[in-house]
Amino acid sequence: MSGDESQQKRALRAELRERRRIMTTRELEQATSQLCAHLIELATRLQVTSVAAYLPATREPNIRPFLGWADEQKIRILFPISRDDGLLDWTVGDGGTEIEGLFGMPEPVGELLGPIAINDVDLILVPAASVDRTGMRMGWGRGYFDRTLGSMEQCPPVYAVIFDRELVESVPSEVHDKRVDGVVTPGAIIRF
């Protein structure tokens, strides 16, 4: 990757972090409600029995009400556990009990299932900083999800969860960056 793209990504991430930081409580609550309705609609439409999701950090789109709904529906939820080697382990969780994991991200407590456990899910929900209209996802820079998605032989649908204005015309990308099949925002479910 050229230094220009790297710099563009850093600048864009900083701008997106700031935009998220200045959202009002009311905006966040409204976004959460709409977002979770769309996630439930997507999971129902795809007849999901298992999903790989994540525990949102502060200022990430809040998918916790959806996780609660999925748990009530007896949908198996796999959550990522970051490893030092850049891979993700997975554990089954209810979206309730959590600790602070690597990089200060919330992680569930549970038995580690190893990196290939994700191969059995019907839907993968990933966090993102931004996604463009071709489905190119820009993460927060550590590459965990790109490596995971790149290693899967048969990948189920992958949807990034973002705020409406984080769906943009284009994002800077590198060779290893992975596209997603769609995005779920407070305003819409979009399949690419």
Rank of each mutant, 00 (worst) to 15 (best):
I162E: 06
L28Y: 07
E98Q: 12
L112K: 15
S130E: 07
G187F: 03
F79R: 01
R179M: 08
T97D: 14
W140V: 00
G101R: 10
S82H: 12
I63F: 04
S170A: 15
T97S: 15
L167M: 14
R17D: 08
M23P: 14
T32N: 09
A31E: 12
E166D: 13
L112F: 13
G110Q: 13
D132A: 07
V158P: 01
W69S: 08
R17A: 05
F163I: 06
P157F: 01
A52T: 02
M138I: 00
V48M: 06
A117Y: 07
A57F: 11
E100Q: 15
R21A: 15
S33N: 03
E60R: 13
Q34G: 09
W69L: 03
T24F: 13
G96S: 10
Y54G: 14
L149G: 10
I75Y: 10
G143T: 00
F192A: 07
F163C: 01
R147S: 08
Q154R: 00
P56S: 12
M105G: 12
Q34H: 11
P65A: 06
E72Q: 13
D71N: 05
L28Q: 11
L149W: 02
G143Q: 00
M136Y: 07
N62V: 05
V92M: 09
P65G: 06
I99A: 10
G114D: 05
G3W: 12
V171Y: 13
L125V: 01
Y159C: 04
I189P: 08
G150L: 07
A31V: 05
W90E: 13
A31G: 11
R147Y: 11
E111Y: 14
S2W: 00
R76A: 12
S82I: 12
I116S: 10
R179H: 05
D132C: 06
V168Y: 06
R147Q: 08
L42E: 06
R13W: 07
E107W: 12
D181F: 08
K178S: 02
R137W: 01
L42N: 03
G96T: 04
L67S: 06
P186F: 13
F145P: 02
L112I: 12
E15N: 07
S33E: 14
F66R: 00
V175D: 11
R45F: 03
L46K: 09
D85Y: 04
Y54N: 11
T185R: 12
T134G: 13
P172Q: 04
V161W: 06
A70S: 03
D4H: 05
F103A: 15
G143W: 03
S151E: 00
V161H: 12
D177V: 01
T91K: 12
S130R: 02
G135R: 02
T44Y: 10
L39Y: 01
P157D: 01
I40R: 09
V184P: 08
E153S: 05
L55M: 15
R83S: 09
G101M: 13
E166I: 01
K74P: 07
T24P: 13
P108N: 06
Q8M: 05
G101K: 08
